[in-house]
Simulated scan of single mutants.
Amino acid sequence: MKEGHSSADGAPNTVHRLRALVVELHLLAAEFARINNLHPTDLRALICLLDAERCGRAATPTWLREQLHLNSASVTALIDRLDKSGYVKRVRDEKDRRRVRIDVTPAAVELGWTFFGPVITHATAATEKYGSRDRRAIDTFLEDMLGAVDAAKASRAPDTTRR
């Protein structure tokens, strides 16, 4: 057990452990961004785009803007940087030629797997020790935690600053 963690059962302990996991994942992502000369926002964009590809979702600049809560000009500059780095390419939608998709390149997929593959492999192995009922409970818990964050954000005063 890590120093500073109590073995006492309870919601505060669970929330603190979840926070510790989030901090560790954030530090890992920051290390990846530093090693690969990526701005943190560019890394978040790549993660969104890789997740979209994995789910079979077409990613557009508008969709990415909504995911990252950025303005259109910032998203255009971000896509330009990722395109110049060889991590994404703009592709015209075959059904609607006015629409542009943002596709991740094999180089981006390889880069992500090279760094995060071991984490994903170990995390997958860790979850396999749980039965399907426990995994459903974990999934429900994680969805509830995302909902709690959304509720906390919604209860704050509106942000009047522009991005």
Results as ranks from 00 to 15, higher is better:
Arg65Trp: 04
Asp93Asn: 15
Thr121Phe: 11
Glu66Pro: 00
Ile102Leu: 04
Thr76Leu: 07
Val75Lys: 03
Pro40Asp: 08
Leu43Gln: 11
Ile102Asp: 07
Ala73Glu: 12
Ala52Val: 05
Thr41Gly: 08
Val119Gly: 08
Asp93Leu: 05
Gly112Phe: 14
Val104Arg: 00
Ala45Asp: 03
Leu38Gly: 00
Lys84His: 10
Thr76Asn: 09
Val119Ser: 02
Thr114Phe: 12
Ala45Met: 03
Trp113Gly: 06
Ala77Cys: 03
Arg54Met: 09
Val100Lys: 12
His39Glu: 13
Asp51Ala: 12
Arg65Cys: 07
Gly117Asn: 05
Cys48Phe: 11
His69Phe: 14
Thr62Ala: 10
Glu66Asn: 10
Thr62Leu: 11
Asn71Arg: 15
Val104Ser: 03
Ala108Gln: 01
Ala52Ser: 09
Leu49Asp: 00
Ser85Arg: 15
Leu46Gln: 03
Asp103Met: 11
Pro106Lys: 08
Leu111Asp: 02
Leu49Arg: 03
Arg44Lys: 14
Val100Thr: 15
Thr105Lys: 01
Ile79Arg: 00
Asp103Asn: 08
Asp51Gly: 06
Ala58Pro: 02
Pro106Glu: 12
Arg54Asn: 05
Arg57Pro: 01
Thr41Gln: 14
Thr114Asp: 13
Val104Gln: 02
Val88Trp: 02
Arg90Asp: 01
Lys84Glu: 12
Tyr87Arg: 03
Ala52Lys: 09
Cys48Asn: 09
Arg54Asp: 10
Tyr87Met: 07
Thr41Ala: 10
Val88Cys: 04
Glu94Asn: 08
Cys55Gln: 15
Leu50Asn: 00
Arg65Gly: 04
Arg99Pro: 00
Val91Ala: 06
Glu94Ser: 13
Val100Met: 11
Ala73Ile: 15
Asp42Ile: 12
Trp63Gly: 09
Arg92Leu: 08
Val104Glu: 01
Val100Glu: 09
Glu53Asp: 04
Asp93Phe: 02
Arg98Ser: 02
Ala107Asp: 13
His122Thr: 00
Asn36His: 07
